[in-house]
């Protein structure tokens, strides 16, 4: 497997030619942001607490295990991604507002999201590994540069601006063309599903549901 180190903010040139499944480490500035942030910025139309575009173009779907220290700053213990599929509905406006070109999180988003929202914005998606490599990622956090809306959103949902170095590992889940590691894995897994259920009789009582095919994802 190939390993690549990237500086943030990232450029389209950096991202070109990167293949899905590449191991990536990051250096520079990124900020965290998830539903709390998106709701305030997009649903409520509150202006961002910093110049988004000037700061960086990398958004991490996460919240750190952080606590205030005696020096008036913050100590970050561990950092772990949170499941990104839940933020799909905000992505279109978010790219418009933030000009982000890299989203990091847990588990990726749907292929439709990549094609509709990521590809037109020259954006890629990095997934955290495992997903519990919180200690390795925590090591890569050099400094809490700033934290915004801590009071309004709490530690878990606040917007943390982090300076990082050798921050990883991540895997390139979706590239500039919208190819997806998870999508491809799902296709392969699907091929073996029918035979797993062969010979197991169905329960007497079925369930209401939104899908009747195990080939579908439920995200």
């Amino acid at each position: 497997m190939k390993t690549v180190h990237l500086k943030m903010p990232v450029t389209t040139a950096d991202l070109q030619g990167l293949e899905i499944g590449t191991i990536i480490y990051l250096e520079g500035l990124l900020y965290t942001g998830r539903e709390g942030l998106y709701k305030r910025l997009i649903d409520e139309g509150i202006p961002p607490p910093l110049d988004l575009v000037a700061t960086t173009n990398v958004n991490f779907h996460c919240s750190p295990a952080a606590a205030s220290n005696d020096a008036g700053g913050f100590d970050v213990g561990a950092v772990t991604g949170t499941a990104s599929f839940r933020f799909s509905k905000w992505m279109s406006k978010w790219f418009e507002l933030s000009k982000c070109q890299m989203i990091i999180g847990k588990g990726g988003m749907s292929r439709e999201d990549y094609l509709q929202h990521f590809v037109p914005n020259n954006a890629v998606y990095l997934t955290t590994v495992g997903y519990g490599t919180g200690a390795l990622l925590g090591r890569g956090v050099k400094r809490v540069v700033d934290v915004h809306w801590l009071e309004e959103l709490g530690i878990a949902q606040a917007m943390w601006v982090l300076e990082v170095d050798n921050f990883g590992p991540f895997l390139l889940e979706s590239d500039l063309q919208g190819n997806s590691l998870f999508h491809n894995a799902g296709q392969t897994v699907n091929e073996g599903l029918d035979k797993l259920y062969d010979g197991l009789k169905k329960p007497a009582l079925g369930r209401y549901g939104e899908t009747t095919s195990r080939d579908d994802e439920v995200i």
Partner: peptide, 11 residues
């Protein structure tokens, strides 16, 4: 890493 640094293994 968690054990060496005494930091949580997952955030």
């Amino acid at each position: 890493a968690a054990e060496d640094d005494r930091r949580p293994m997952c955030a």
